[in-house]
């Protein structure tokens, strides 16, 4: 790990002063579950590390207008223990519990989950986010891609590592981003971006900005998350689906379906969402929605199986949201 300065601001203002204009200048530290390992591997070597855990206003879970506000430095453990979150957003709690390591849930934060870097093994071994070989060739399409994207035409083939992302997108959440020049709000869905060139990041965040909170609309939905994971021990999902359904009796009035670990962003299954409107959730409609969700998948040489997993994840998430046993 390259030597670095350490800043421990008590206020956002102090934090902004410690950040820089490029990613090499400074990195934000919250739980540190990703940043420390990526620094140890020299994949990222910031000159300064800015710990935001001492900034009180970044914590806490509370009602804010028509939304539930989750402070950026709320840990996954605090999130899953919160009664209001548990009762309204089971899909979010299920996603967080998918991080099956209590240690990671104790340290990892909600904003950190959204901002963590992809786990692509080419990226983590120093071949860059777009994973290029010695002659600039794309390594993923013909290489070891069994954990890579099934919804991408390149040049990015990694999958978003965010665990909470699918649930937050399905729930229609937004993030508040602050900098010295003020606040801006962006939907969680738009927060994730697929880079198209070298040097671009996978999230809509600038080096001088900090995610301060996540806002989830309060109106009730039936929501659930289903992850397909190889191990029960802490493991990255092979595919994940989160759904949020607005219902009129047993009839779906609107559906929101977000997929994780299948694209460089959180992937919205819009065709599946549309076909569910006016339907009742049954094994058959859930299965058909799963089919629709993967209809446009473009799997790589070694990850066709993820298409099937994603279809199943959508089906099982829908059945769970509707309270139907698979």
């Amino acid at each position: 790990m390259q030597s670095f300065e350490y800043a421990n601001p008590a206020t956002l203002k102090e934090a902004f002063a410690a950040l820089g204009s490029s990613w090499e200048d400074a990195a934000v530290l919250a739980g540190g579950t990703d940043l420390l390992s990526i620094m140890k591997d020299y994949v990222q070597s910031p000159k300064r590390v800015v710990n935001i855990k001492g900034i009180k206003e970044l914590g806490g879970i509370s009602r804010k207008g028509g939304s539930m506000r989750i402070g950026a430095t709320t840990t996954l453990d605090e999130l899953t223990s919160n009664a209001a979150i548990r009762s309204s957003y089971p899909g979010l709690v299920q996603a967080a519990m998918g991080v099956t390591s209590p240690q990671l849930r104790n340290m990892g934060t909600v904003a950190g989950d959204l901002c963590q870097r992809p786990r692509c093994w080419y990226f983590r071994r120093g071949f860059g986010l777009l994973a290029k070989g010695p002659n600039g060739e794309a390594l993923v399409p013909t290489g070891e891609n069994k954990f890579h994207a099934i919804f991408s035409n390149g040049p990015a083939y990694f999958v978003s590592a965010s665990t909470l992302g699918p649930a937050l997108v399905a729930l229609g959440a937004s993030v508040t981003i602050a900098s010295a020049s003020g606040n801006r709000s962006v939907s969680v869905e738009k927060f994730f971006v697929a880079p198209t060139g070298d040097g671009q990041r996978e999230i809509d965040l600038k080096p001088n900005e900090i995610v301060t909170e996540i806002l989830i609309p309060v109106p009730a939905t039936k929501n659930a998350t289903y992850e397909v994971r190889q191990r029960e021990l802490v493991d990255w999902p092979l595919s994940a689906a989160s759904v949020a359904l607005r219902m009129n009796g047993n009839t779906v009035t609107s559906a929101s379906i977000a997929l994780g670990h299948v694209a460089p962003t959180i992937w919205r299954a819009t065709q599946a969402e549309k076909m569910l409107v006016g339907k009742t959730i049954t094994a058959e409609t859930a299965d058909a929605a799963g089919e629709a969700a993967v209809a446009n998948a473009t799997p790589l040489s070694g990850n066709k199986y993820k298409v099937q997993l994603t279809k199943v994840a959508v089906k099982r998430a829908l059945l769970a949201a509707a309270g139907i046993k698979a």
Binding site: Y122, L139, T142, E144, F147
Partner: peptide, 18 residues
């Protein structure tokens, strides 16, 4: 898991070496 193009082991860790 070893990469054909780069010849590098891609999972020398406790994350993807399961």
């Amino acid at each position: 898991v070893i990469d054909q193009v780069t010849g590098r082991v891609l999972n020398p860790d406790m994350e993807f070496y399961k």
